[in-house]
Simulated assay, not measured.
Amino acid sequence: MPGLLDLSSPRALRRLLPLAALAASVTLSACASSPLGRSQLTLYSDQELEKMGEASFSKYQQELPVVEGRQDAYVSCVADAVTAKVPASYGISGWQVKVFEDESANAFALPGGYIGVNTGLLEVAENQDQLATVIGHEIAHVLARHANERVSTQSLTSAGLSLTQALAGLEGTGGDQLMGLLGMGAEYGVLKPFSRSHESEADLLGLDLMAEAGFDPRASIKLWANMNAAGGAQPPVWMSTHPSDEQRMAALNERLETALPTYQQARAAGEKPNCDRLR
């Protein structure tokens, strides 16, 4: 059929071999499950992800000024209390915590045990419980292996589009335009929804984690209200990598039914973090 790739030609086979290798690795890789029971595709080893995390953290430190002193002590106090509740089975012997001079209200945690908090977040998170909400959320991404799932999905999606282009013979200007549309469909139909499921999962797992550390999970609702006020206009949910703040608050409010008793038990057992807010 005109326009299709001739699979009998050496050139076609050379183009398809890398894709076949990736397909074989997907077939051989074990499907994992997230802590909440959702099926996951993980093509990379923990060691590979830890190296990625180390490299990313090093790059971040090179690009932004690291803040020390009272802000660092405050963030470290909250982060240490939360990370103390990470089960040893995850194999993270210690967590590096850094505060970065950046006005965006953001934070992150990376595979291998790295936590970064921007100074802008300290303007939105009004107390230790709200800060613990964000830090618990970011740590939950690591514990649920969302980074592995994310890069695995991106690799597989990219390979699938390449295979479509090879099999259909989509070359030239017209082919590039069609592949661009297919790529957009993959982004909004697969990658972004995947990311939204990660965010929702991290919200719930992070809430449990902060409650176990003795931070009040009810503060999570106010934190996301603050984020909503600071965030301005938001894109439609289907175009966003995050659920809307309203969706997050509704899900967190429902989760309080179990998180609040966990918090009360932790406080009764002596988990009473007291981190200096600075002001």
Rank of each mutant, 00 (worst) to 15 (best):
C275I: 02
M184F: 09
P35Y: 01
A233W: 00
A268N: 11
G169D: 01
T153N: 10
K51H: 10
G69I: 05
E254R: 12
Q61Y: 00
P10K: 11
V86C: 04
R70M: 06
T157D: 07
A225T: 14
L16T: 07
L121K: 08
Y44H: 14
L181I: 05
G231D: 11
S244C: 03
P193D: 12
L4A: 07
T119F: 06
K51Q: 15
N118T: 04
G37H: 06
Y114M: 04
S25P: 01
L156E: 08
I92C: 08
G94M: 02
L204I: 13
S34P: 10
S158D: 14
Q62N: 14
V134S: 08
L43M: 11
G185F: 02
L252W: 01
V142I: 09
H146W: 10
G91H: 06
G112K: 06
R15Q: 14
V78R: 06
F108C: 10
A73T: 12
F215G: 06
S76Y: 02
A20P: 00
R196S: 06
L19D: 10
E201P: 00
A20T: 07
H137G: 05
S240M: 06
A144W: 01
A259Y: 01
G206V: 05
Y188M: 13
A12E: 04
K98S: 14
N118C: 11
D72Q: 15
T119W: 06
G214P: 04
L36R: 15
D46C: 01
L161P: 01
Q247Y: 04
V99F: 07
G189D: 03
D245I: 00
F57E: 09
T133N: 09
L170N: 04
I135Y: 07
Y188V: 15
L122I: 10
E63Y: 00
A202N: 10
V117R: 07
R11Q: 15
L205G: 13
L207N: 11
V66C: 01
R38M: 07
G172T: 01
A79S: 11
A132H: 06
G112C: 06
Q234I: 07
R248D: 09
S93F: 00
E63H: 02
P87T: 03
G116N: 09
K98A: 14
K222E: 14
R150V: 04
A140R: 04
L205C: 03
A250N: 09
M179R: 03
S240E: 08
E246Y: 09
S240P: 13
A213I: 05
L49A: 13
L36G: 08
V190E: 07
G206R: 02
S197V: 06
G112Q: 08
L223W: 02
E48I: 01
T27H: 12
L178E: 04
S200Y: 05
P35T: 05
A21E: 15
L13M: 13
S9Y: 00
A166G: 00
G91R: 08
